[in-house]
Nucleic acid binder design. Structure first.
Length: 291
DNA sequence: CTTGTGGCCTGAGGGC
DNA sequence: TGCCCTCAGGCCACAA
C-alpha cells in the first residue's frame, strides 16, 4: 500500500456525503481546534465568537477546497483543505470518534458534530467573508475547478504559461483540483511524458489530456475515492481506487498498456510514475499514409 | 517568469 | 521482533 492523499475526488465525495447527511440547515453552536496555527484569516477565538448561531446554508467545492457557507447578515464561509491526510467525519458522539488526530470540531445544534481529522497536521481551515476569502493568497488565486472548466478556458490558461506539463497541471492557479495521482494517471492515458513542454503540445494533445483528466477524476469518484490509508469517507467507508489505478505507485511493475517496466522519477518536485515506452517526450509524427 | 530546495508533520514500510 | 531511517505529499517561503 502506498501513500494516497485526498485530491479533488475525495473532497467531492465528502461534499456529496455531507449533503446526503443533511447538514444543510444545521445551526452551529461552537467551534474548537487544537491547531490554531493552521487557521487562516480568523483566529480560533474570533471564529468561535463569530460562528455561533450561524446556519449552514451551502456545501460547495472548488478544487480541493470544501466550503461550508454560513448564514448571517455578513455571510461567512468555513473552508477546509485536507492536504495529505485530512478528512471530515460527521459524528453524533464526540467521545466515540474524537482521537488524537482530531484537529477541529464544529458542534451543531441537536448534537451532531463535524470532526476534522488530520494526523499530519497539514490541513488548513479558513474562516471569513467573501471579500476576505478573495484576499487569501491561495483562495484568491484559485483557478477554475477542473470539473467545471471548459476546454476553451483550460487551453487558454495553459497556453499562457510555459514549462513542463506536469508542474503546470499541479499548479492550482491554472486550474484547481489536480493532484499528483490525477496528474500521473491522466498523463499515462494521454501518452504524454510528464516533462513535455506545454509550448510543444498540439491543441489535439491538450484536448485529449483535458478529457483524460476529467475521465480519471470521474473514475476515481465512481470508485469511491483514492483512499488507501489516510482518507476515508465521512461515514467511514473506504475508497476503491485500486481497481481503476493504472500507473500511480506502480513503480516496479509493468505498464498495463505496453507491458514494459514503468519508471519512477522526481519531476516537478514530486514522485512521478510513468511509462517511458508509452509516454515519450518527442512523439514521432505518423508518416503520411502510415497507420 | 521559471525551477529547485527545505520545512511543515506523522505513520508506513524497508532494511537489518 | 523491533528499531532506525527514509519517504510520502500540498503548499509556501525563499533563493537562483
Amino acid at each position: 500500500m502506498k501513500n494516497i492523499m485526498p485530491e479533488l475526488p475525495e473532497v467531492e465525495i465528502t461534499k456529496q456525503k455531507l449533503i446526503e447527511q443533511k447538514i444543510k440547515g444545521a445551526v452551529v453552536e461552537d467551534f474548537w481546534t487544537d491547531r490554531p496555527q493552521n487557521l487562516k484569516l480568523f483566529s480560533d477565538i474570533k471564529i468561535q465568537k463569530d460562528i455561533r448561531g450561524r446556519k449552514i446554508i451551502s456545501i460547495e467545492r472548488r478544487g480541493k477546497v470544501l466550503f461550508l457557507g454560513l448564514s448571517g447578515r455578513d455571510k461567512k464561509n468555513l473552508a477546509f483543505h485536507f492536504r495529505m491526510s485530512g478528512r471530515l467525519i460527521l459524528a453524533e458522539d464526540v467521545k466515540k470518534f474524537k482521537d488524537t488526530s482530531t484537529r477541529a470540531i464544529v458542534f451543531l445544534k441537536g448534537g451532531k458534530k463535524i470532526l476534522f481529522r488530520d494526523p499530519r497536521k497539514f490541513g488548513v481551515i479558513w474562516y471569513g467573508g467573501p471579500d476576505e476569502l478573495k484576499q487569501d493568497p491561495y483562495l484568491g488565486f484559485l483557478g477554475p475547478d477542473m470539473l467545471e472548466v471548459t476546454f476553451r478556458v483550460f487551453l487558454e490558461r495553459l497556453k499562457k504559461r510555459k514549462g513542463k506539463i506536469k508542474s503546470l497541471l499541479l499548479d492550482q492557479k491554472i486550474v484547481s483540483g489536480i493532484g499528483n495521482i490525477i496528474a500521473d494517471e491522466a498523463l499515462w492515458y494521454s501518452k504524454l511524458h510528464p516533462e513535455t513542454e506545454i509550448k510543444k503540445m498540439s491543441k489535439a494533445q491538450i484536448r485529449k489530456l483535458y478529457s483524460d483528466i476529467r475521465r480519471v477524476i470521474h473514475n476515481i469518484i465512481k470508485a469511491g475515492g483514492t483512499t488507501l490509508r489516510d482518507w476515508a469517507h465521512p461515514d467511514g467507508k473506504e475508497g476503491g481506487y485500486e481497481k481503476v489505478r493504472r500507473i500511480y505507485g506502480r513503480g516496479k511493475k509493468n505498464c498495463f498498456r505496453c507491458k514494459n517496466p514503468v519508471s519512477r522519477a522526481v519531476i516537478a518536485g514530486r514522485g512521478t510514475t510513468f511509462c517511458p515506452k508509452c509516454q515519450k517526450i518527442d512523439k514521432v509524427s505518423t508518416p503520411a499514409g502510415g497507420r
